[in-house]
Design a binder for these strands. Sequence first.
DNA 1: TTGACAAATGCAACTTAGTTGCATAAAATC
DNA 2: GATTTTATGCAACTAAGTTGCATTTGTCAA
Lengths: 126, 126
Amino acid sequence: MNLKNTQARSAIYDFLIRSSSPVDVNQIIGFLRSKKLNTNKVTIYRNLDTLCKNGLLEKLEFGEGKFRYEFKKNHHHHLICTNCGKIEDVSGEYLSEIERKIKSENGFLIKSHVLEFYGLCRNCRS
Amino acid sequence: MNLKNTQARSAIYDFLIRSSSPVDVNQIIGFLRSKKLNTNKVTIYRNLDTLCKNGLLEKLEFGEGKFRYEFKKNHHHHLICTNCGKIEDVSGEYLSEIERKIKSENGFLIKSHVLEFYGLCRNCRS
DNA sequence: TTGACAAATGCAACTTAGTTGCATAAAATC
DNA sequence: GATTTTATGCAACTAAGTTGCATTTGTCAA
């Protein structure tokens, strides 16, 4: 696939690569405005889509009724604080055993999984 | 909380209790129409909300940009076929060990988790 | 370095999912 | 059967995301 290096696209990508947790489209719009880049939301959606399809970003959901995006890194999960909204990464490949079992018992071939944890972060616990 | 037993509510609940996989609001509307119950979508959303808050239903997301609902049963996960869309249940409490580890390492207190598997069901594999 | 072509953008209008305020209706309780 | 509480319907609205189409911008080869 032929990806062109445009202003909007590289700004979006830069923002995502620097974000420490998954961002939504509004945060992207805010960032682009702050950079005085007048970018249409359609362009943002299309770029996010393209970047996902090219394996550069990941599209995620956290029960908010909208999507969030993050720079694609090694397989990991998230700790979502239900009090303050903070999203931390947590790595770990916990499920290979389980996936093997499901394949033999259910005849279902697992290609991917989503595993996210909800609870209270260190700050909000105290 | 005082739940009244209304026509709309019990029809929605009946439908959910009989559905073998999580349903979206359109499926509920279709069902109610087929029963000649002329129910407003607002009523459906409010009932789903109420039933969730009372622990009778569960609200789920499968990366479709909308919510699905299911009758609340024992903790379980789903096998979502990315080819035909079929959603199967799979039971199992795989994560207690992991959750303990996360608590001590990240100081994060896990209250719940979401674990869903995507892949190909038995039919779609062949 | 320029011209051609594919890919990207912007705009307006649209869709889909879900929400809110408010007046009315229906259950449950007394 | 009257009262109170909860539920419903309607209309209008918001928020997230999409589509068609005309225009612009990168890229690459001549």
